[in-house]
């Protein structure tokens, strides 16, 4: 069985963000980078499926700068067999339609039986790329899954709906699923597997070879939201802070009465 998992490298969301000189995206300098959280669940599920179905082959794909290879190595250490890095210095300026088109173009002649993506990326968070890839390839897709099972070519999944209700759905491979938080328990790469991963194939292809479409949208301007509400921000020594907070709770709420 041929499996593809798509991952994105994103900044740590606790980073102190700055805006780039053009005012169109955040500045990529001085940030800590990691695998998009949703994609960690996608990688884990893909590896579990590979382990379940003998003779499977699992490819991890990522579009981005040279530095994304660091994140790809983690996916290889967790159990992906090979990596395809689509080299693109400007992937952050591409819209979901372009990103999906590049991945669909790559996948079109590979005969993947199952494709895993995250349900959304943490930085741009469009929740579009997965479903778009499937539509472009003409295969069914199930979004926002929190449970996944595969048997005899049949996929049974649970989609998570609002309020924690789940919808039970079935489809047949080839298919694509987009993974929601909590789908499984992502494993950590072990040291021996990190060493082994260094020997795994990590192919690099130029984005220009796969990009055949034009963007449908662009970021005109990026900015920090105005701080509204005028909440109080307190800093300082913990004992002082605790005293201040108790006074505020006494003044403004009835809970300490």
């Amino acid at each position: 069985m041929k499996i593809l998992v798509c991952i994105k490298q994103v900044p740590d969301m606790e980073s102190k963000f700055k805006i780039n000189a053009e005012g169109t995206w955040y500045d990529g300098i001085d940030l800590a980078w990691r695998m998009n959280e949703y994609d960690e669940y996608a990688v884990e599920q893909a590896v579990q499926l590979k382990e379940q179905v003998a003779g499977s082959d699992l490819t991890v794909l990522c579009i981005g700068r040279q530095q994304v290879q660091e994140t790809m190595k983690k996916a290889l250490a967790i159990g992906c067999d090979r990596g395809v890095h689509v080299a693109d210095e400007n992937s952050h300026q591409k819209d979901p339609f372009e990103i999906a088109s590049v991945i669909a173009e790559f996948a079109s002649d590979k005969g993947f039986d199952l494709i895993f993506t995250g349900m959304q990326s943490q930085d741009r968070g469009s929740a579009q790329v997965g479903v778009l890839i499937a539509e472009m390839l003409g295969m069914p897709s199930i979004s926002t899954i929190v449970d996944f099972a595969f048997a005899d070519g049949q996929i049974s999944a649970k989609r998570e709906l609002e309020g924690g209700i789940k919808a039970l759905v079935k489809t047949t491979a080839p298919a694509l699923v987009t993974c929601q938080l909590g789908l499984n328990t992502p494993r950590y790469p072990t040291l021996p597997n990190i060493m082994k991963a260094k020997k795994k194939e990590l192919l690099s292809v130029e984005v220009a070879d796969l990009l055949k479409v034009e963007a449908k949208q662009e970021t005109a301007k990026i900015y920090f939201p105005e701080k509204k509400g005028g909440g109080l921000v307190l800093e300082g020594e913990v004992a002082d802070l605790a005293d201040q907070l108790i006074q505020i709770l006494k003044d403004k709420t009835a809970v300490l009465a």
Partner: peptide, 29 residues
């Protein structure tokens, strides 16, 4: 497709970025 629109400013949709730490105006082509 512009996802998760939070407001419209001068006819242009605005969407959150990075866990709502940033906002962006999205221009459709």
């Amino acid at each position: 497709q512009v996802s998760e629109v939070v407001e419209i400013v001068d006819g242009v949709p605005v969407a959150p970025v990075c866990n709502s730490k940033l906002r962006r105006q999205v221009k459709a082509n």
